[in-house]
Design a protein around this nucleic acid. Structure first.
Length: 283
DNA sequence: ATCCCCACCTGGCCGC
DNA sequence: TGCGGCCAGGTGGGGA
């Protein structure tokens, strides 16, 4: 499922309902997620109030009372559902429901078929957690700019597609938004990143365009509630709409959307992952 | 040091 | 209808 816009959508849904609520109890399926669920999750989080809910990159951060934080990653197929009071009364855990949070009069269910998601609990600043500390700046944040990209791209040989998926360079993008941002920027995904930087280390215009298009595609997707492919939905079980606006992702063999372009979208594999692009528009 | 590959899982879809 | 193969939004560890 989830890249930055989808995680932001889930985070907002949780924030609307859960802030100032007290976790009365937690039920676990007994399965491990990508990592084992922390043994002290139930004892440490139960009885705590949810003070605030934040997001860093693709992580949802639950800030609880007494300086406890939950750090939640949705992996590929993780999702939170907030059950209504009525649903909560008779709810029986479904297959792949791995964590059920009990509140006074309703429940929140974490469901994750592929179990690539994970959750950590910490009594320290979550920003210092090893999963968060290494993340690069994220789109639309103050410290995301062409200078920092130019620094990361300077004299490096990697294809730009791979570099944009590297969460230590820029965090929050995944396969969909990288493909879409490169199309909007008219940059070939195979292009080596050093070619976007002048030999004096400053950003070429194409890199500035790329930075702007990354911000734009993320902003637009958040406004539409993210992209729903297969199983992504928000905390109410509703779908996002951004998938209807894809220019290249999942469009192999279909016509390029650019005016005056007669090319078909191509799928290649880079570092084991599908890349979709227009060979004519993206140079 | 840098970068790629693979494993971690289940389920859905396609072709035979 | 069934089965095998392939594909999927992410990440971190190991190895080249």
């Amino acid at each position: 499922m989830p890249e930055l816009p989808e995680v932001e959508t889930v985070k907002k849904g949780l924030e609307n309902i859960l802030v100032n609520k007290i976790i009365k109890g937690i039920n676990l399926s007994g399965f491990s997620l990508r990592f084992p669920i922390p043994k002290n999750l139930v004892s440490l989080a139960s009885g705590k109030k949810i003070v605030s809910i934040g997001r860093r990159s693709k992580y949802i951060l639950f800030n609880l009372s007494e300086n406890i934080s939950l750090i939640s990653h949705l992996g590929m197929s993780g999702n939170y559902r907030i059950l209504s009071q009525e649903e909560s009364k008779s709810y029986k855990a479904k297959k792949h429901d791995h964590i059920i949070f009990q509140f006074e009069d309703f429940k929140v269910v974490y469901n994750d078929p592929r179990r690539f998601g994970y959750i950590f609990i910490t009594d320290k600043d979550p920003k210092d957690h090893r999963s968060i500390a290494c993340l690069g700046p994220e789109p639309m944040s103050n410290n995301f700019n062409e200078a920092i990209l130019a620094k990361s791209f300077y004299k490096k040989e990697r294809p730009v597609k791979n570099a944009l998926l590297d969460q230590t360079i820029i965090s929050g993008l995944g396969n969909i938004y990288v493909c879409e941002a490169l199309f909007r920027s008219k940059i070939n995904p195979k292009k080596k990143i050093k070619q976007l930087v002048y030999s004096n280390g400053s950003a070429k215009n194409s890199l500035i365009i790329l930075k702007n298009e990354i911000n734009e595609v993320i902003k637009e997707s958040i406004l539409l509630g993210g992209s729903s492919l297969k199983d992504f939905s928000n905390t109410e079980g509703k779908m996002g709409y951004f998938q209807n606006t894809f220019s290249v992702y999942g469009r192999e063999g279909e016509l390029c959307v650019s005016k005056d372009c007669d090319q078909k979208i191509v799928r290649i594999v880079q570092s084991g992952r599908s890349t979709f692009y227009c060979p004519k528009c993206q140079k």
